[in-house]
């Protein structure tokens, strides 16, 4: 198939950037979206030009490195997958595709479609862990956890840290990301002792990084490649409120 691409090109963080037009010719329908970009990049290289830079690594939907707004939607309009899992058979010959970076104040652009998501790492540093010294753990079966709780924790733990939730949100809020991590750890008995410090720490760091507030539009849930539920946001709000109330009583 033949396609027209409108791609965001930006030399570096300081460059204003603009959309450029490329013709993608003879793209096999079995190719993945990123393989389509590989083919286009090959054509760009043959003309001696700098190829389109985009983040990617595992190309099987799990590392969270790939991003891209495809026709305005993070990871494309296909539900429950990452950009690297989008296949060209979902497009039609002659289509025009707009390809832009994930946009948010807390995700500054590095080059072209590559953004800096290190703000997510700093949120995890602020409490997204269970503090357990290596070697001090009790036998794994000494704390039984009901299957329902384990499964619910797992559902929240599947977050790949891609940032699509932020890119889809009109406020660039990171609430789905933060709440997924809080929900994963808070509901396990191992994570209970640090629950309050965790939610306060992560929420405050999120604010400091410049992410916006949640206004319950749930675009995040719709684009999440792992279909993480926005119910986690409600849980986080409740846990945060309780933690803050406790903090103010005890101080």
């Amino acid at each position: 198939m033949n396609l027209t691409l409108k791609v965001w090109r930006q030399k570096n963080a300081n460059d204003p950037g603009q959309l450029e037009t490329y013709q993608a010719k003879e793209i096999p329908s079995e190719a993945s979206f990123l393989e389509m970009l590989d083919i286009v990049n090959n054509q760009i290289l043959e003309q001696g030009q700098d190829p389109i830079h985009f983040d990617h690594d595992c190309r099987e939907g799990i590392c969270g490195m790939c991003s891209l707004n495809i026709n305005g939607i993070p990871h494309s309009k296909e539900q429950g997958i990452t950009t690297c899992q989008v296949h060209m058979r979902k497009f039609s010959d002659g289509d025009t595709i707009w390809i832009e970076p994930f946009r948010a104040k807390a995700f500054p652009i590095v080059k072209d479609l590559v953004v800096d998501r290190s703000s997510f790492d700093r949120i995890i540093q602020a409490g997204g862990y269970i503090d357990v010294r290596t070697g001090s753990a009790p036998d794994a079966n000494s704390v039984p956890i009901s299957k329902e709780v384990a499964d619910a924790a797992f559902d929240a733990a599947t977050c790949i840290g891609c940032g699509a939730c932020v890119a889809a949100c009109k406020n660039a809020s990171a609430m789905l990301f933060v709440s997924a991590k809080a929900s994963h750890l808070n509901q396990l008995p191992q994570g209970a002792p640090e629950k309050e410090a965790r939610v306060i720490g992560m929420v405050e760091q999120m604010d400091e990084e410049g992410f916006g507030n949640c206004t319950n539009h749930f675009e995040c849930e719709a684009v999440c490649p792992k279909s993480i539920s926005a119910d986690n946001i409600a849980k986080l709000n409740r846990d945060y409120l309780l933690a803050k109330a406790k903090q103010s009583v005890s101080s």
């Binding site: 357990v132 290596t134 753990a137 794994a140 704390v143 924790a153 797992f154």
Partner: peptide, 10 residues
């Protein structure tokens, strides 16, 4: 044991 204590949801 270590991974379970860290919250790995096996």
């Amino acid at each position: 044991d270590q991974a379970t204590a860290q919250g790995v949801p096996f």
